[in-house]
Design a protein around this nucleic acid. Structure first.
Lengths: 188, 188
DNA sequence: GTCTATATAGAGATAGAC
DNA sequence: GTCTATCTCTATATAGAC
């Protein structure tokens, strides 16, 4: 992929994760990239094309990162802490995860974007669920209900905490909240 | 307060909780209310005035509802389930709680709105924390860390679940996730 | 691939008549 | 308190020159 195209995606992701989809325009992006907004339209004719590219790239990037964590030799609680740390880094930078922001602006999304978002969310919960399954199997964690429900609530907590942390508490609050949750899973 | 002013707030709250602040305009609201957008400006000169009125009204409404739950004779887990049910009702209606949507659009808010939002979030967490404290005191609940951190993570989970539920899982997923979390607190 | 220029639509907001 | 009319700005998007 071209360098400009990647730069556009970088800048767009940063803006959108900070401000939300509807607060970001092609003008904002092009000003930072250093080109004219018409040039953005050359790479991404419509805004939904940009959003879809962002979602797919994010699925790649974070999907890989989560997979890498999930397939490591760590214990399940350690894996959860690594995931929480990814969210914490976002919060430190004043950003919300792309899935979180775009889900908040769900009704503004094109149907195609919604489908990608749904698939990505599904995959993320599945990856988390595998970690909860591991925790139960290796005897390091206990929790009520299914792996899936535990994963869903953990994921929800991180997204909600990322959103609320900017209002009150900051990254420390997110860290404290996720630590409290993970500690609650521990058996020893 | 006048009837029109309240109707404007009702419609605005509905729109904003469904679509996010930046996706809602005075035109959208006035069309549903049945007046012209200039008339909205009479009641709320600037958008921030509308947002602040919404936040204060919501703090009243839900603040009272939470206080009512908190000061009831129920056990702590039962109180948490009642709170989760309030969020579930929002999800059933396709809405996110006002604090959640506005926090997502945080950087678009006026400084005055941010302050109200911060105060409201603080109060909400404090109300929840008192329930966790009760749970520990009455011996119905166990959890790691402080009341505050447990409350913060519970609140975050509900907001995140409300956002994610629209993408995947719906109200049943929110219900299942919050049940799993609350069940994890139970001692018996 | 990037530019200038433009079309079109919608936003927030104000002035002044009724 | 609501209206019409208007201002100004910005949004998405396209056409066509370079």
């Amino acid at each position: 992929m071209q360098d400009t195209k990647n730069t556009i995606l970088d800048v767009a992701e940063d803006f959108i994760r900070r401000n939300g989809l509807n607060a970001v325009s092609y003008k904002h992006i092009s000003d930072v990239v250093g080109i004219k907004k018409a040039s953005i339209h050359y790479h991404f004719p419509q805004k939904k094309d940009l959003v879809n590219a962002l979602l797919l790239r994010c699925e790649q990037t974070y999907g890989c990162e989560y997979q890498s964590i999930a397939s490591s030799a760590l214990s399940a609680p350690e894996k959860l802490r690594k995931i929480a740390d990814v969210f914490k880094q976002g919060t430190v930078a004043g950003k919300v995860c792309l899935m979180g922001v775009l889900s908040s602006d769900l009704t503004s999304l094109d149907e195609s974007s919604r489908l990608i978002l749904e698939k990505t969310a599904e995959g993320t919960v599945a990856t988390y669920a595998a970690i909860f399954e591991q925790g139960r199997a290796e005897g390091s964690m206990q929790f009520h209900g299914s792996d899936h429900n535990a994963a869903y609530s953990f994921f929800s907590m991180l997204i909600g905490a990322q959103i609320m942390a900017r209002v009150k508490g900051g990254a420390e609050a997110l860290q404290a909240a996720s630590d409290a949750v993970i500690d609650g899973y521990l058996i020893n």
